[in-house]
Design a protein around this nucleic acid. Structure first.
Lengths: 225, 225
DNA sequence: ACCATTCAATCAAACGTTTGATTTATGTTT
DNA sequence: AAACATAAATCAAACGTTTGATTGAATGGT
């Protein structure tokens, strides 16, 4: 069965996507030239317009591509959680949430993709393009939602409760900051890169803090309205 | 005393800086054209090379400009803290740290500068240029350091203790995430912008979590080596 | 008359995109 | 099976535009 055509098509196509991922991940959209990408991908200039219409099309496709990769990397954690959640105890949910964040931490810090992802993801958060929708639907949304369910069940609150959502956001924030603001922390630690002890220490610290946050008292609706 | 000359120089100079701050804050370095900046600043193209040598020079000056503005906004908090710290009780230090983060939160979310700062600051963290040094020395470093001193004193640890530094980093992370990943949280909340209750609720939540984190048990140096 | 500043005009280089020809694979007819 | 026709994919070359930068003249306060 000659898959040669499809293969060859996907070949330059994926070569372009990989090159674009690397390029867009480490530099601005406008800082990356199409010529640079095709050179990296060992393809011809017009391959971009042929496979993706234009540069923007390639960028959108790249974000979608990244979303899928990242999602796949978290899939085991994410998908298997939904059914597990129904028969889990509240106590288990708290522990699971901490574990999830721990895995997430390692994933973005040590993982292959974590190298290029942050630049793109932040850019889309800061200045959403059409590609943000994809990113949210396939990655950010599900992660947030799953985590919210865990937190909510552990604390006996609703997964739509703003307080829970704020908490989830915080938990993610204190995790990703070690990737986002890596440069600053390393400068303070007077190191060039995280040592093994750093990784271990931070992960432990995040776990401790996660549990402490989860155990804070739910706000009593003493509301003033 | 004829300040007119200096004034006029500073006039277009600062007009350029303000325009550049706005431009670089909302778009990539390469996404911003010099012509666009000078048009915003109502100046001539060659004003850039005259006042800042070239585009890069303008960018560096803009980062320095931003650093100063941000630092000034936090100066009351920051400078008055050093002397205060020496005669403060541990308990006070904990409370002060939480307060500081609260102010910081409002500053980056509601403040004028918070609109343009995140884009630049993140970009410099993710891909440091020469300008990062300025940013670190005048803003990021001092903030981290001050917070570390507060946390350390409250917890009876050293301000150089990695655990303290990790904790400070986390605390900052869970604060800035509400600005950085604003888009995502708003999408989850199904809102266009943070409501007054959101701001209030998040600030309260951050305070609670900050205290919970500060009160976690210091790691016993049960070290395995 | 001098100096700092602003201006319009101009430059080469790099940009994203398009073109028309060429090569490679697939399908059809004999 | 061989010859032809059609489509998919790649290629070098060129397009017009925009980019950051430079120039030398004009302006205005002292």
């Amino acid at each position: 069965m000659s898959t040669t055509q499809t293969e060859s098509r996907n070949d330059t196509r994926t070569r372009l996507l990989n090159a674009a991922l690397q390029a867009f991940g480490s530099r601005d959209y406008d800082g990356v030239s199409t010529r640079e990408i095709v050179e990296m991908a060992d393809a011809n200039i017009s391959a971009i317009s042929y496979h993706f219409e234009n540069k923007q099309g390639l960028y959108h496709a790249t974000v979608a591509y990244l979303s899928e990769i990242l999602k796949a990397g978290m899939a085991e954690q994410l998908d298997s959680l939904e059914p597990w959640l129904k028969q889990a105890s509240a106590e288990d949910c708290g522990e699971k949430a901490c574990q999830f964040l721990g895995h997430f931490f390692e994933h973005i810090l040590l993982g292959e993709v974590g190298k290029h992802a942050p630049g793109i993801i932040f850019r889309e958060q800061n200045r959403p393009t059409e590609a943000y929708q994809i990113l949210f639907e396939t990655l950010l949304g599900p992660m947030h939602k799953t985590l919210a369910q865990l937190v909510a069940k552990y604390r006996g609150q609703s997964a739509q409760d703003p307080q829970v959502l704020y908490m989830v956001h915080s938990l993610l924030g204190q995790t990703v900051i070690f990737r986002i603001a890596q440069t600053t922390l390393l400068k303070i630690l007077k190191q060039k890169k995280y040592s093994r002890e750093d990784i271990k220490g931070i992960k432990h610290q995040l776990g401790t803090q996660c549990r402490a946050i989860l155990d804070t008292q739910p706000i009593t609706n003493h509301s003033d309205q």
